Structure formats: C-alpha cells, structure tokens
Simulated assay, not measured.
Amino acid sequence: SLASLSWWHRRDLPNWLPWISTFALGLIIFQGVLGGLTVTELLRFDIVTAHLGTALLFFSTLIVIGTLLTPYQGTGSVGKLPWLSLTAVIFVYLQSLLGGLVASRWAVHQCFGASELCTVMNSHIAGVVPATVATVAVVVIASRTPALHPVLRQLANLAASLVVLQILLGVATFRLRLQVELLTICHQAVGAALLGVLVGFTVFALRDRTSVECQSQ
C-alpha cells in the first residue's frame, strides 16, 4: 500500500518517497522468500540470519521514511554527530546479525557443551565493545553539545537507556545459556529498538546538518 500510494500521489510527495517505498516493498518480498526458505530448509542458520538481517533493514527503512517526513528545523550544532551515530548504527546492526547467528547455531550450547562454535559466540561477545563504545560516544557528545535540538537530545537519552538494558539482558541471556525464551526475545527486541533509535538520530542529525548548510548558501 505504501509503495502504490506513494507512486499514485508522487506529484504531491517528495521525489525520493516512491523510490524508497519501492525499496521497502522489495525487502518485504525478499523477506517472504527467506521466510519460506527458513521453513523448507529447516531453520538453516545462514538463511535464518539473512532473514533477521532483512527484517532489521526493512525496519530501519521505515524509520528513515518516518524521520524524513517529520517536520524538523535544525539548529546547526550537530557537528560530527551524524557520522558518529551512523557508525553506531553499523556496529549495532552487525552485532544484531552476530546475535542471530549465535542463536540459530546454538553457539552457546555448542561451546560450553562440546567446545565447538566458540569463535561464533566469542565474536558476539567481542562485538559488544564497538557497538557500546560508539553508542556511548553518541550519548556523551550529544549531552555535551550546546543548543542541540530537543529531538536529538531525547533520542540520545533513549539510546543510553536502551544500551544499558541491552547489556543487562545480554548478560542474563548468556548466563542462562539462552534457556529462557522470553529473555532471548527481549534481548533481540531491545537490540532492534536501539538500532531504530540510532537510525532515527542519524537521519535527524543529517537533516540538521544539511538544512544549516543550505541556509548558509
């Protein structure tokens, strides 16, 4: 519906909207194909991970559309925050994929039970560092940036809360060796929420920077 309506009303909408809506539709179709393969291939780990990655990419695309359509007037104080938050987005996305790989391959059980797939598990544990450092850097710099737009400040505060919650859930999930399904689901859901917040922050920050540059010209 989004893609068809955006093309139907394209004369009254931003030029980019029909194209990004079509991209989102393509992701949904690809996601459906991967979903079918996930069932027919009996939850093969690479397909499950690709299924997760596509879902997160679709979710991020919707966040981008929403933030681009939201009225926003930049203050011109973002500095390097757009690129720093984009880095955090990439790290969190990759970390989410590693988490899906750990879950789909039962890497925690395999490592502790048979000393197999420990590299996969350790990669996810090590991936916590860059994702957390990048997110915390965004939060700290945002808190120290004067005249930062209230929306960006709120998103930064939300990201701080989510990253703390995500670490706590990750530790609990690891200690319980993924035995509590609800805890594992919450861990993945909070990770997706953190990704969405960072994507929104990045888009708003880029709009802030772009709007000020256009005004200066």
Rank of each mutant, 00 (worst) to 15 (best):
L182T: 08
L94S: 05
L101Y: 01
G200S: 09
D12M: 12
G74I: 01
H187I: 04
V190S: 02
L168A: 13
L158M: 13
V128N: 08
G32Q: 12
V190Q: 02
Y72D: 15
T202C: 10
T173C: 02
S60V: 04
V197F: 09
R177N: 14
S60G: 12
V64Q: 04
T210M: 14
G113C: 05
I20F: 03
L152P: 02
P130W: 06
D12E: 15
E181A: 01
R105W: 02
Q31M: 11
A126M: 12
H51G: 03
L13P: 00
F58H: 11
T119P: 04
V138C: 09
I90T: 14
R44F: 10
G100V: 02
I47N: 05
V64Y: 07
N157E: 14
G196R: 00
F174P: 03
G26D: 14
C111K: 04
S21C: 12
V138H: 01
L69S: 13
I28S: 15
L94I: 08
V180K: 00
E181Q: 03
R10Q: 14
A3E: 10
V120M: 11
A134K: 00
L165E: 09
V48L: 12
A126G: 12
L97A: 06
L34I: 07
Y72C: 07
L148R: 03
Q188D: 07
V139Y: 08
N15V: 11
C118G: 13
T75H: 10
L25K: 00
L195H: 04
P146H: 14
V140M: 07
L183S: 04
G74P: 03
T135D: 05
I125W: 11
V163K: 00
L165Q: 04
L155D: 07
L34Y: 05
L94Q: 11
L155T: 03
Q31F: 07
S6L: 07
T184V: 12
S216H: 14
T38L: 14
W83N: 09
L42D: 14
M121N: 08
I185P: 00
S21R: 01
V136P: 00
F59M: 12
G66W: 06
G100D: 02
I20H: 02
